[in-house]
Structures are given as structure tokens and as C-alpha cells.
Simulated scan of single mutants.
Amino acid sequence: MAFRGPQVWLWRWRRNPLRRRADAVEAWVLLAAWVVTVLAGVLAGLATAGTVEHGMARERVEWRPSVALLTEQAPGPADSRPATSSSEQVWAKVRWSARDGSAHTGQARVQPGSGVGTPVTVWTDPQGRLVTRPATPSEARTRATLVGGIAGVCAACVPFVAGRAVRSRLESRRIDQWGYEWARFGPLWGGRTRG
């Protein structure tokens, strides 16, 4: 195992007779790659999070609850207790009117065993299509943060991988140069000493 001395910070930027031009180029490439990685990740994450949160805020404004009526008997036995979760509800066909007065039909989650004509609250978009309940502001922030974080990490991977590829290429080139220089000057040092 080769002995390595203490690590010196920023050695590639310090004046040193052993520092080669390739060391300085590699240092600048690494610095640029890290700066672009951080900037790309942060900017992409913030932009994506802002877009997602803005879209969910628009949904909260545009989507409205509507009263729909069951057009068929809901499957399952009738239960007097209200369903506490959507997993305890069943899908059934409902009919509702859009804001412009046009009639629409679709599938919605309802209480098991609900009869024909039972009123159900559904959420609709401005065109009268069924949508899910819009996210609350805290849910929207959480989703925006998660999506923004994922987008930021993905965006940061591109310059990071590119920087690693350039560094690997520079290192390969440096090793080739060492081999060339050793082949050129090695025989000059190869003489035997007499003693």
C-alpha cells in the first residue's frame, strides 16, 4: 500500500512546480461540474415545485363539489354506519349536472348498498368532468416538495455524470501522458550503478 501524506486543500490551485496543466484543468472542470450540478438541481427543483403547487392551487379554485344522484343500486349490503375510508366504499354509476346545465354520468365511490336516487357529493372541473377532491394547501406543499426534490435530483444528475465522464477522460489522458513520458525518459535512468 502506497503512503499518502496529509491531504492539502485546494492543492490544484496553489503554485507548485509539480502541478501540471492537466491538474489545473481538472480542478476547473470539477469546480464547474459541482457548481452546475448544484445550480441545476436547485433551479429545477424550485421551478418544478412552484409549477406543481401553482397547478394544485388552480385546481382548488376551479374544481367544485356537486351533488350527484345514484342511477343504480350500489353493490354490497346496506350499512347504517357511514364509511370511514374510501376502501369501505364501492363504485356505482351516478348522474350530475354541470355548471352549464348539461347532464353527465360516471362512476363515483358511494356507501355500499345505497339505493337509486341517493345523493352523493362529487368533485367536477369547469367542463363538468369528474375529478378527485383537490389537495389542501398543506397536501399541495408536501406533494410539490416531493416532486420538486425528485426533479432537482434528476436534473443534478446530468451535469454530475457529465463532470465525472470528463474527469475520467482527463485522468485517462494523464495516465497515457505519463506512460509516454516514462517510455521516453525511462531508458535514460536505466543505467546500472557500479558499486
Score class of each variant (00 low, 15 high):
residue 151 A to P: 01
residue 79 D to Q: 10
residue 132 T to W: 08
residue 88 E to D: 10
residue 29 V to N: 09
residue 58 R to F: 04
residue 22 A to W: 07
residue 121 T to H: 01
residue 75 P to V: 07
residue 7 Q to D: 00
residue 159 P to T: 02
residue 168 S to A: 13
residue 133 R to N: 07
residue 84 T to Q: 14
residue 30 L to K: 10
residue 6 P to G: 12
residue 130 L to F: 09
residue 90 V to F: 04
residue 144 A to P: 03
residue 125 D to H: 00
residue 34 W to E: 06
residue 54 H to C: 01
residue 5 G to N: 15
residue 46 L to C: 07
residue 99 R to N: 05
residue 180 Y to C: 06
residue 166 V to Y: 09
residue 87 S to W: 08
residue 2 A to N: 13
residue 115 G to L: 02
residue 147 V to G: 06
residue 134 P to L: 04
residue 93 K to A: 10
residue 141 R to H: 10
residue 168 S to W: 09
residue 87 S to M: 12
residue 172 S to P: 00
residue 57 A to G: 08
residue 56 M to P: 01
residue 23 D to W: 10
residue 30 L to S: 13
residue 148 G to C: 06
residue 88 E to W: 01
residue 116 V to G: 05
residue 41 G to T: 05
residue 5 G to L: 15
residue 73 Q to E: 10
residue 31 L to E: 09
residue 101 G to R: 07
residue 110 V to A: 03
residue 140 A to D: 01
residue 141 R to Y: 10
residue 176 D to I: 02
residue 133 R to H: 09
residue 35 V to S: 13
residue 132 T to L: 07
residue 154 C to K: 01
residue 172 S to T: 09
residue 183 A to V: 06
residue 24 A to K: 05
residue 102 S to Q: 14
residue 143 R to P: 09
residue 108 A to M: 01
residue 149 G to Q: 03
residue 123 W to T: 03
residue 25 V to H: 04
residue 30 L to T: 15
residue 190 G to A: 15
residue 194 R to W: 13
residue 81 R to E: 15
residue 168 S to T: 14
residue 1 M to C: 12
residue 89 Q to N: 05
residue 9 W to E: 07
residue 159 P to G: 04
residue 147 V to S: 03
residue 169 R to I: 05
residue 192 R to E: 07
residue 141 R to M: 04
residue 2 A to R: 14
residue 56 M to C: 00
residue 13 W to Q: 09
residue 119 P to L: 08
residue 71 T to E: 14
residue 151 A to S: 10
residue 191 G to N: 08
residue 181 E to L: 15
residue 4 R to T: 11
residue 103 A to M: 14
residue 151 A to N: 05
residue 30 L to N: 14
residue 120 V to E: 03
residue 36 V to Q: 01
residue 138 S to Y: 02
residue 137 P to N: 00
residue 112 P to Q: 12
residue 172 S to Q: 11
residue 138 S to D: 08
residue 71 T to F: 10
residue 124 T to H: 00
residue 15 R to I: 13
residue 35 V to A: 14
residue 182 W to N: 02
residue 146 L to Y: 04
residue 181 E to S: 15
residue 170 L to N: 12
residue 75 P to E: 13
residue 101 G to H: 06
residue 55 G to H: 11
residue 161 V to D: 02
residue 131 V to W: 03
residue 155 A to H: 05
residue 149 G to A: 09
residue 160 F to D: 08
residue 9 W to Q: 14
residue 14 R to M: 15
residue 131 V to L: 07
residue 163 G to E: 12
residue 173 R to L: 15
residue 35 V to Y: 06
residue 191 G to C: 02
residue 118 T to C: 08
residue 189 W to A: 12
residue 166 V to K: 10
residue 186 G to T: 08
residue 46 L to S: 13
residue 172 S to K: 13
residue 180 Y to K: 15
residue 132 T to H: 12
residue 157 C to F: 08
residue 36 V to E: 04
residue 136 T to W: 03
residue 87 S to C: 11
